[in-house]
Amino acid sequence: MDPAPAIGIVLGFVVIITANVLEGGNPANMILLPPMLLVFGTTFFITMAGGTVADMKAAMAGAKKAFTGGVPKGDAIVDNVVTLADKARREGLLALEDSLKNVDDPFLVKGVTLAIDGTDPEEVRDILEAEVQAKKSADKQAAKFFSDAGAYAPTVGIIGTVMGLVHVLENLAQPEELGHLIAAAFLATLWGVASANVIFLPLGNRLKRLSELEVNQMEVTIEGVAAIQAGSNPRVIAAKLKSLLPAGSVAEEAA
């Protein structure tokens, strides 16, 4: 698990609250249900309206992944491929069937299984690359949900502020109420801008980055499967795959 999103979002709000306190404000005054309900509720539903129910469900799964997902470890895929390549070179592709039981990478297992079944190398590559494209499309839609929410939220906040100011104008005869009403009105804009820039847009970017790393690893896996089928030298395979690893995986490996 990579704690970057949790740390970033939490500390982002901590800085905002700290700045508010330093300016003499009371953080409790920022917590007001009506503007928060308007911003978060309306933003969620209008973002959902721009897609499908399936898109919304995928986005919710993506939100969980954004907080719990980690950077794929490139060394694991390289070790698995090299081990399989070494055995295939010594005992043949059919000997890999039992070894796959110890591999926890479904994509690698699928590719090697196709190879064991005698599928043409080009067909194996086509099948695996089609799966990569499907993943890219699914991940893009999940990230788009939060990017769209980040675009809608500030505008929804402005709508809330306008509604609040209308309410202010309705109460001009009660000047003692005006300060509270104006402050409440502008809280909608505050939450609209804050939610967009501290929550929604960072989550969208996080999902894009995780997708890039996972897709890169899948592409490395495809090259590994092709090398196993070709009977390449395991040392050559290891050197080639390590050169293709994404930057995040290289950092993990070096650590």
Score class of each variant (00 low, 15 high):
residue 61 A to I: 00
residue 63 A to I: 05
residue 63 A to M: 13
residue 63 A to G: 06
residue 64 K to A: 12
residue 64 K to Q: 07
residue 65 K to D: 08
residue 66 A to E: 02
residue 66 A to Y: 01
residue 67 F to Y: 04
residue 67 F to P: 05
residue 67 F to A: 07
residue 69 G to S: 04
residue 70 G to A: 11
residue 72 P to L: 02
residue 75 D to L: 05
residue 79 D to H: 09
residue 79 D to K: 15
residue 81 V to K: 07
residue 84 L to V: 05
residue 85 A to V: 01
residue 85 A to I: 07
residue 86 D to E: 15
residue 87 K to N: 11
residue 88 A to D: 07
residue 91 E to Q: 15
residue 91 E to G: 10
residue 97 E to Q: 15
residue 99 S to F: 00
residue 105 D to I: 07
residue 106 P to K: 11
residue 107 F to S: 14
residue 107 F to R: 14
residue 107 F to D: 08
residue 107 F to P: 12
residue 107 F to E: 12
residue 108 L to F: 10
residue 108 L to N: 10
residue 109 V to A: 09
residue 111 G to L: 09
residue 113 T to H: 04
residue 113 T to P: 04
residue 115 A to W: 04
residue 116 I to V: 15
residue 116 I to P: 15
residue 117 D to C: 02
residue 118 G to K: 02
residue 120 D to M: 05
residue 120 D to N: 12
residue 120 D to H: 07
residue 120 D to L: 01
residue 121 P to D: 11
residue 122 E to W: 01
residue 122 E to M: 10
residue 122 E to G: 10
residue 124 V to H: 08
residue 125 R to S: 10
residue 125 R to G: 03
residue 125 R to M: 05
residue 127 I to E: 15
residue 128 L to S: 04
residue 130 A to E: 13
residue 132 V to H: 05
residue 132 V to P: 04
residue 133 Q to G: 06
residue 133 Q to F: 03
residue 134 A to K: 11
residue 135 K to T: 10
residue 136 K to L: 05
residue 137 S to D: 09
residue 137 S to K: 12
residue 138 A to V: 13
residue 138 A to K: 14
residue 142 A to Q: 08
residue 143 A to W: 00
residue 143 A to V: 00
residue 144 K to V: 06
residue 145 F to I: 04
residue 145 F to E: 08
residue 146 F to W: 12
residue 148 D to S: 14
residue 148 D to P: 03
residue 148 D to V: 09
residue 149 A to S: 12
residue 149 A to I: 02
residue 149 A to Y: 02
residue 150 G to T: 06
residue 151 A to V: 10
residue 152 Y to M: 09
residue 154 P to L: 02
residue 154 P to S: 02
residue 156 V to K: 01
residue 156 V to F: 03
residue 157 G to A: 06
residue 157 G to T: 05
residue 158 I to T: 00
residue 159 I to F: 07
residue 159 I to E: 04
residue 159 I to L: 09
residue 159 I to K: 00
residue 160 G to N: 07
residue 160 G to P: 04
residue 162 V to D: 08
residue 163 M to A: 15
residue 165 L to D: 12
residue 168 V to P: 14
residue 169 L to W: 08
residue 170 E to W: 05
residue 171 N to V: 03
residue 171 N to A: 12
residue 172 L to W: 05
residue 172 L to N: 11
residue 176 E to Y: 12
residue 177 E to C: 01
residue 178 L to M: 14
residue 178 L to H: 10
residue 179 G to E: 10
residue 180 H to S: 15
residue 181 L to D: 13
residue 181 L to Y: 10
residue 184 A to E: 14
residue 184 A to G: 15
residue 185 A to W: 04
